[in-house]
Simulated assay, not measured.
Amino acid sequence: MSQSVMPGPTKEIAGVATRNRPGAGERFGKAVETSWRPVALLFACFVAWWAVAAAELVEPYLVPSPGATLDVLTGQTSYIWEHTWVTTYETLLGFVIAVVVGVLAAVVMVYSSTVEKTLYPILLFAQVVPKIAIAPLFVVWLGFGITPKVLIAVLIAFFPVVISMVTGLKAVDPEMLQLSATMGAKPWQTFVKIRFPASLPHLFSGLKVAVTLAVTGAVVGEFVGANEGLGYVILQANGNLDTPMLFAGLLVMSLIGVVLFVLVEIAEKLLLPWHASRRDNNVTTSF
Rank of each mutant, 00 (worst) to 15 (best):
D280F: 08
A54P: 04
N238L: 12
V252E: 01
E12T: 15
V139G: 00
L169Y: 03
W81I: 13
Q127E: 13
T243E: 04
V252W: 00
A135Q: 06
V166S: 01
T91S: 03
A55Y: 13
E268T: 04
T212R: 05
L169R: 06
S78C: 08
E33P: 00
N281A: 09
V39Q: 05
L263N: 02
L62Q: 12
K117C: 11
E116V: 02
L142P: 07
Q3C: 10
F191A: 10
P121T: 07
A17H: 14
A44I: 12
G23F: 08
A126C: 13
T284Q: 12
V100W: 09
L151P: 03
A171S: 15
A198K: 02
V32I: 12
P148E: 08
D71V: 05
A267H: 07
Y61P: 04
A226E: 05
L93R: 00
V110R: 03
V52P: 02
I134Y: 03
S205R: 02
W85E: 11
V161R: 10
L70C: 07
F158G: 00
V100F: 12
L251K: 06
L169N: 04
S205L: 07
L93I: 15
V52G: 00
E268L: 00
W188P: 03
G67I: 13
I13M: 09
A51L: 15
K11M: 14
V162F: 00
K30Q: 14
V107R: 03
A126W: 11
R279Y: 05
T243M: 10
V140E: 14
A214I: 10
Q189E: 15
L255P: 01
V58R: 04
L263C: 09
N282L: 01
V140N: 13
V220F: 07
Q189Y: 11
W49Y: 10
Y111C: 08
T167D: 12
A126F: 14
P38G: 09
A267P: 06
S286L: 15
F247D: 01
H202K: 01
L142Q: 01
W274C: 04
G23I: 03
A14H: 13
T18P: 06
Q189G: 11
S113Y: 11
S199Q: 05
L270K: 00
G257S: 02
Y232W: 14
P60V: 04
V215E: 09
L41D: 12
T10H: 09
F204P: 06
I194V: 15
Q178G: 06
V211Q: 07
L92Q: 01
T87K: 03
S277C: 03
F138C: 02
V215S: 03
S113Q: 14
G249H: 00
L230K: 02
A98W: 00
T74S: 12
R21V: 15
E175H: 10
T10S: 13
H275A: 04
M109D: 02
Q236A: 14
S112R: 02
T216C: 09
A17T: 15
F125K: 05
S254Q: 09
A14D: 14
G75M: 08
L123I: 15
T190F: 11
P130S: 06
L230Q: 05
P197L: 05
A24S: 10
A198W: 03
V259M: 07
A210E: 04
K170W: 10
A185S: 14
F287Q: 04
T284L: 12
Q76G: 09
V86R: 01
L263R: 06
W50F: 15
M109N: 00
P22A: 02
N227M: 11
E12W: 13
Q76E: 15
T18D: 11
Q3V: 15
V47A: 13
